[in-house]
Design a protein around this nucleic acid. Structure first.
Length: 859
DNA sequence: TAATAGAGAATTTTT
DNA sequence: TTCTCTATTA
């Protein structure tokens, strides 16, 4: 345990509290009375918690001052929200439908807890799933209280909070408090080693599968010794054993994976009731966001902590449970009332987001699911536009139409107010669907942003660089060393690697020491030995610089933002300089500089970004801890852009206009979901449909295509069964452009052949009255001349013959988004450009200018 | 040991 | 189709 265990951090708080003016005697008495013994038992929250307590105390001072006034955060809440805010004690289930002001109620509840003096900021455990949600909650609580909310040390993600707890009690599960948190990549490599060591055919039994299996077990809080007999056959009957070996390896490496953060804490709490008791008393109020997404481990962890006081308020929506495939149990929320007897259930049903038609369509779709808790969303707003449905010939046609529709809506159509591209989103089921849109948008020059995809910290070069940092920070981080000791190439092949590993194993030393031994004993010779020696020496030297540069060693808890710099001497070399030095001297930077692939410049950029990100941290280890828990990367640009993302990524967001393409059986609902989990999978897909529709504020457009290219193969598609479930009264069928065709009709029987599945909507989508539909009029203006579109805004350059002829093969050109490049192909108005930074792209000539005239680009 | 050609697989994703 | 991983070959 940290040496500060006995520090009497409570005194400042009690003194301050006792001095509060105008406080009701009873409350004060009760609280100090209750509080005092608790606080002396509770393991002190390491040194910085003193400041928590201090801040908490001063906060409660001003909170009390506020209490004298009316409570402004209650203003404007509807009765249900208000009930949810004021039911402070006992178990509460806040069933919050989409767009019903859930976050508002949740944050007001926290404010209420604080302002009424019911809880101190550090007595509230508030858990979210994402860092984004945690951040947002902090901000909003702060704005409700009119002051910063750093005083809530226990508001965070499940993982961040568990990491914080586990660092305190690591030794109870055989770890040191400076354990590393591995990411997916590290896990995979570790498992692969185990599989190979076990002589299992790695092709038939890939590490990925084992990782999935172990992850699923951890989601269910199953440790190797608790695996039920039913699991014995998993992974060719080797699963349980490999799981045990994996955990052993992790312990040897002083490492945990994400699942372990939860599972270890559960293990600790179960084995140490006294400790659990202390935390139960410490966390007097528990709030959980997105409860429908909790898995079994998270549920158990919460239940352990909530036992006793049962002051647990969970917020969620069973209809928006879309993460079953990664272990979320809708059952948790469905069972809440039985799990916590006497729970009050508060339904937030008034929707502030969408129009009546959109809500009606969403409600009708979700009504197809069984076993819901049941909610009826309503709005006192307008009915607005009906949900729009349109069928297309193929996926490309769909992308083309949506692109044009977006531009039309940005201008304002049919008397509808214009909608900025920022307010529009295309939500797809699977990320590969995005490509058709990206291609199209690039062609027409429609600015877009993709949410999701590989994150900054998951990129290869960033991870390599971080592995270098890790090796310097913790020389026994074998996984990190393994990642980089032959990157850049140092002539170490399988043979050399095996030798080093064997040496390390047999001497019981880390890989890096094994490597040194191999070099020193001459077991390894030649160039490989020289390069390896340079690396090992380098690491030692960098580490020396680091230790000289900062006082902080491993063992502190860098995830605590409150730990601040004060007593650091001015370092001779900053961690930023050190990082640059590491990347340069190791030859890593040079490796990419010498790389001639088109990605290399981008990778170097990312490395620069990475070094820049270091500025926010006091030292390397603080940075590494942060990154292992927080994998996000925001870039905000000013240009209005359409958003492209998956339905999953869209949960919690809202847009004035939403496009839902690809509603075809097999794609959405996904065939795989239905094959693997049957009706359960289908219902989750249906919830996904519900999530999609409810993202829309004013306009929601569902579309499907009759033909689609899947992995290069053309496939005929059937409209989604969810389309049958849309209520006709709330749907307007737009005209498929293929029907009045621009020459495509003749090619195959009917553009919507195979779409006719008997539903009236399908038929309508196929044969809508072409000439009377508003869709037709719009289509006439918008799609009459494919390839010769009108500019949507002034800054779009019209595509014309001149632009085509303006470039020839080999010309240097400039593009606003991709920068400089050279023309490598010409096909009509489409040019293939090999961009210096962005690789080869196909772009319409109108978006390019000759490189030498780039300075007078008109946008 | 490194480069290259060929095979095989390719929802959804946070921490 | 396209990317990644593996086996082959120089």
């Amino acid at each position: 345990m940290p040496k500060d265990r006995a520090r009497p951090f409570i005194f400042p708080k009690l003194r301050l509290r006792a001095a509060l003016p105008g406080e009701e005697m009873g409350t004060l008495y009760e609280q100090s009375f209750k509080a005092a013994p608790i606080r002396t038992i509770v393991p002190p929250m390491s040194s910085f918690d003193d400041s928590d307590a201090f801040e908490a105390a001063s906060r409660s001072l001003s909170a009390r001052a506020m209490a004298a006034r009316p409570m402004p955060y209650l203003d404007g809440l509807n009765p249900a929200q208000r009930a949810a805010v004021e039911a402070l004690k006992g178990p509460v289930l806040m069933l919050a439908g989409a767009g019903t002001g859930k976050t508002r109620a949740l944050t007001a509840r926290i404010a209420h807890l604080l302002v009424t003096g019911t809880a101190q900021p550090n007595e509230i455990l508030a858990v979210t799933f994402t860092n984004k949600a945690a951040r947002e909650m902090k901000l909003r609580v702060a704005s409700l209280l009119g002051q910063p909310a750093e005083g809530m040390p226990w508001l965070g993600t499940f993982h961040a909070i568990c990491a914080k707890l586990l660092r305190r009690h690591a030794e109870l599960v055989g770890l040191k408090s400076n354990f590393t948190i591995l990411d997916t990549d590290d896990q995979l490599r570790l498992m692969k080693q185990l599989i190979i060591a076990d002589n299992i055919d790695e092709k038939r039994w890939p590490a990925r599968q084992l990782a999935g299996l172990i992850d699923a077990w951890k989601n269910r809080a199953l440790t190797p010794d608790k695996l039920p007999a039913a699991e014995a056959g998993a992974f060719n009957r080797r699963g349980p054993a490999l799981y045990g070996q994996y955990q052993t390896r992790l312990r040897e490496l002083n490492a945990v994976d994400f699942g372990d953060l939860l599972v270890h804490m559960i293990t600790i709490f179960q084995a140490h009731p006294d400790l659990l008791g202390q935390y139960q008393r410490w966390f007097r109020f528990i709030l959980v966001d997105e409860y429908q997404d909790t898995n079994i481990a998270q549920y158990l962890w919460l239940r352990l902590l909530a036992q006793g006081h049962s002051n647990i308020c969970v917020v969620g929506d069973d209809d928006q449970s879309i993460y079953g495939w990664r272990g979320a149990e809708v059952g948790n929320i469905l069972r809440f009332e039985t799990d916590f007897p006497g729970a009050s259930v508060i339904r937030l049903e008034q929707n502030y987001r969408s129009t009546g038609h959109i809500l009606a369509a969403a409600s009708a779709v979700i009504a197809g699911n069984q076993g819901r808790l049941g909610k009826t969303l309503w709005t006192d707003g307008e009915d607005g536009e009906k949900l729009r449905l349109i069928g297309h010939w193929d996926g490309e046609e769909e992308a083309r139409w949506i692109g044009e529709e977006i531009e039309a809506m940005a201008r304002g159509t049919r008397g509808m107010a214009p909608i900025s591209p920022d307010g529009m989103a295309i939500l797809v089921r699977a990320s590969h669907q995005m490509r058709a849109f990206e291609d199209r948008f690039l062609t027409i020059g429609l600015p877009y942003r993709v949410i999701g995809g590989p994150r900054f910290y998951e990129r290869m070069e960033v991870r390599d660089a971080m592995a270098y940092f890790r090796v310097v920070v913790s020389p026994d981080d074998d996984l990190a060393f393994e990642r980089i000791f032959n990157t850049p190439k140092r002539g170490l092949g399988d043979k050399a690697q095996a030798l080093i590993r064997k040496l390390a194993r047999s001497h019981g030393i880390s890989l890096i020491e094994g490597a040194r031994l191999a070099v020193d004993t001459g077991a390894l010779g030649g160039k490989a030995a020289r390069d390896l020696k340079a690396l090992v020496d380098g690491i030692a030297r960098w580490r020396g610089l680091m230790l000289g540069a900062a006082m902080s060693g491993p063992g502190m808890a860098p995830e605590d933002d409150l730990l601040i710099e004060e007593d650091h001497p001015i370092p001779k070399i900053s961690h930023i300089e050190l990082a640059e030095m590491i990347l340069d001297e190791s030859g890593y930077t040079a490796m990419w500089q010498n790389d001639k692939t088109p990605e290399a410049p981008g990778r170097l950029e990312n490395l620069k970004e990475l070094v820049k990100a270091l500025e926010l941290f006091e030292n390397l280890q603080g940075f590494l801890e942060h990154v292992s828990l927080i994998m996000d990367n925001e870039s905000d640009e000013s240009e209005p852009k359409v958003t492209l993302m998956t339905l999953h990524a869209a949960k919690g967001l809202e847009f004035p206009a939403v496009f839902l393409p690809g509603w075809e059986d097999g794609l959405f609902p996904s065939q795989r979901a239905m094959d693997e989990t049957g009706i359960k999978g289908l219902e989750e897909e249906r919830r996904l449909a519900y999530v999609g529709i409810t993202r829309a504020e004013r306009v929601c457009t569902v579309s499907f295509a009759g033909n689609r290219r899947v992995y290069g193969q053309w496939q005929s598609q059937m409209p989604s069964r969810f389309i049958d479930e849309l209520p006709e009264d709330h749907v307007e069928v737009l005209t498929p452009p293929g029907l009045h065709g621009h020459g495509r009709m003749g090619a195959t029987a009917s553009p919507v052949a195979g779409m006719m599945r008997g539903s009236d909507l399908h038929q309508a989508a196929a044969r809508a009255d072409v000439y009377n539909s508003p869709g037709w009029k719009r289509l006439q203006t918008n799609t009459a001349r494919p390839g010769l579109r009108q500019p949507a805004e002034a800054r779009h350059i019209t595509i014309d013959a001149e632009a085509v002829s303006a470039f020839a093969l080999g010309d240097r050109v400039f593009h606003q988004k991709f920068g400089y490049g050279a023309v490598v192909s010409v096909e009509g108005d489409k040019l293939g450009i090999a961009f210096d930074k962005a690789g080869v792209k196909h772009v319409v000539a109108g978006f390019l200018v000759a490189a030498d005239s780039a300075d007078d680009v008109p946008f």
